Amino acid sequence: MSKDQLFLLKPGFEDPAQAGKFFVCPHCNAIEGLLASFPGLATQIEVQRLPFARPRSPIVEILGELHQSLPVLVFDQSGPVPEDAGVVNGRRFIDSSERILRYLAERYSFPYVHQ
């Protein structure tokens, strides 16, 4: 059985332009917080943490070079997909951290409060 694929930046990455400084992506970090709060979620979707450096080959292979900004959730092709999902190369995806969080809450039935 295929699963939705969630691509995040690895936390604590180094930007080559700013050697010696380590960063986190605030958009990816919000999703990391969700995964930490609901550990069973990571067993229901495939989570890949990619390095900061481009090209980010795993996502490029699916959505192409123009769509490698993270976070992004690529939908399993056999399951239902939200109407507002984008489509590239025949694959449906969402790339807004807010929308990814909302989708995961709706799909996997845990509370989500939008402020």
Rank of each mutant, 00 (worst) to 15 (best):
Met1Asn: 03
Ser2Cys: 02
Lys3Asp: 06
Gln5Gly: 03
Leu6Val: 15
Phe7Leu: 06
Leu8Ala: 02
Leu8Arg: 03
Lys10Cys: 01
Lys10Asn: 10
Gly12Thr: 10
Glu14Ser: 06
Gly20Ala: 05
Phe22Met: 08
Val24Ile: 13
Val24Gly: 04
Cys25Glu: 03
Pro26Glu: 06
His27Lys: 11
Asn29Phe: 11
Asn29Tyr: 07
Ala30Arg: 15
Ile31Glu: 04
Ala36Tyr: 08
Ala36Gly: 09
Phe38Glu: 04
Phe38Val: 14
Pro39Thr: 14
Pro39Gln: 02
Gly40Gln: 10
Leu41Lys: 10
Ala42Asp: 08
Gln44His: 12
Val47His: 04
Arg49Val: 05
Pro51Ala: 06
Pro51Cys: 07
Ala53Arg: 12
Pro55Ala: 09
Arg56Ile: 03
Arg56Trp: 09
Val60Lys: 06
Glu61Met: 11
Ile62Ser: 11
Leu66Arg: 12
Leu66Ala: 14
Leu66Lys: 15
His67Gly: 00
Val74Gly: 00
Val74Pro: 02
Ser78Lys: 09
Gly79Thr: 13
Gly79Ala: 12
Pro82Arg: 05
Pro82Ala: 08
Asp84Val: 00
Val87Ile: 13
Val88Leu: 02
Asn89Val: 12
Arg91Lys: 08
Phe93Tyr: 13
Glu98Leu: 07
Glu98Pro: 01
Ile100Leu: 04
Arg102Ala: 12
Ala105Leu: 02
Tyr108Ile: 00
Phe110Ala: 11
Gln115Cys: 04
